[in-house]
Amino acid sequence: MDCVMSENGQRPTLTLGFSPCPNDTFIFDALIHGRVDCGFSFREQLEDVETLNRMALSATLDVSKVSYHLLGHILKDYLLLRSGGALGRGCGPLVVARDGIDPGELAGKRIALPGQYTTAALLLRLFNPSLADFVYLPFHEIMGAVADGSVAAGVIIHESRFTYQGYGLKKVLDLGEWWEQETGHPIPLGGIAAKRSLGREALLSLERGLALSVEYAFAHPGAARPYIRAHSQEMSDEVCDAHISLYVNDFSRGLGPEGEDAVRLLLNRAAEAGIIPRWQEPLLIP
């Protein structure tokens, strides 16, 4: 499965960042390990989502998974690839607390967020712009901070959706569900950003290569298992599979008109709220 090769026959190497979460390792396994070919070699860097966001702010990587919130801050240097991301229904961040409280009671309470530039942080600010007392923690530390009373509530992402009840926590609000009811659109969580300076041909090749990698993963789900498990040893197979099932779907193959509309709406709402700057650059490869 080929996409492109350089004129001199040598394979360029690109830096590629994504998270160690099962959905990302599932998506990128075939691309990284040469099971599909788009004419590039990759030097991957696996980091948590907020680390990747901050690396993208300084334009460190050629290609990177980023939060859609962060995308609004980097469109001068990057654009969005249509494949490889996380966007869907029923997969949004959850607000959890020790006690059953009403979402309206969050005002004035200290809330833990999994990073300043995460989509989770953006959604909470869009839900209630008056909320302002935030503490930023790595996503895997949030449930413990809520459970021990360090914070009154926390916004959880990734596999925490499947494990928060084990910490004695209760769901206060499903931010993805709120977004879907508010807009009728699926929720854009994270997408793949690539440097505009790579040029249109290379960007299209990357976009196709990512789509092929997703297709390969769906067709050969066992092939990615060793790579997934190498980066998620603390998770059971059941949690890994649930994670992949929740975050990898047809939108990961390609955004399509529905996905593109959802992304534009989220960024427009963020810009109108003054959370991200307004942009002039094309969002996607023309």
Rank of each mutant, 00 (worst) to 15 (best):
I228Y: 02
Q10T: 12
Y78A: 08
V66K: 11
T183K: 04
R161E: 04
R196I: 06
I156V: 15
V151Q: 00
R208D: 03
S150F: 05
H140W: 10
E207K: 01
E44H: 10
I111A: 04
R278A: 14
L71A: 15
A59E: 10
G166W: 07
G144T: 10
A194E: 03
L212H: 10
R196Q: 10
G176D: 00
P114L: 06
V135W: 00
T60M: 11
D48A: 10
L46Q: 13
D2A: 15
L204P: 00
D250H: 15
R253S: 12
R82Y: 03
D250T: 14
E182F: 06
E177Q: 15
F218I: 11
G144H: 12
I275L: 15
A262E: 05
D99K: 14
P12L: 07
I275A: 13
R264C: 09
V248C: 08
P188E: 05
A262T: 02
N8P: 13
R253P: 09
M235Y: 09
L87N: 07
L31Q: 08
A86S: 14
A153E: 02
C240F: 02
R35H: 15
R43E: 14
G184L: 01
R264Q: 12
I111P: 05
K170Y: 02
G92R: 02
E272T: 01
K170W: 03
S67Y: 06
Y68P: 00
A262V: 01
W178E: 03
I187S: 08
L94S: 08
V95K: 04
I285C: 15
A147K: 12
G34N: 09
I156H: 04
L79M: 14
Y247L: 11
L52I: 08
R196W: 10
R278S: 11
G85D: 12
L94P: 09
L46F: 05
S19W: 00
P226A: 01
T51I: 15
E44D: 09
T13Q: 14
S64T: 15
D77F: 00
R269S: 00
P188T: 04
T118N: 11
M143A: 13
G256Q: 05
Y164I: 07
L94F: 10
D2R: 14
Y227F: 15
T25K: 05
A153M: 04
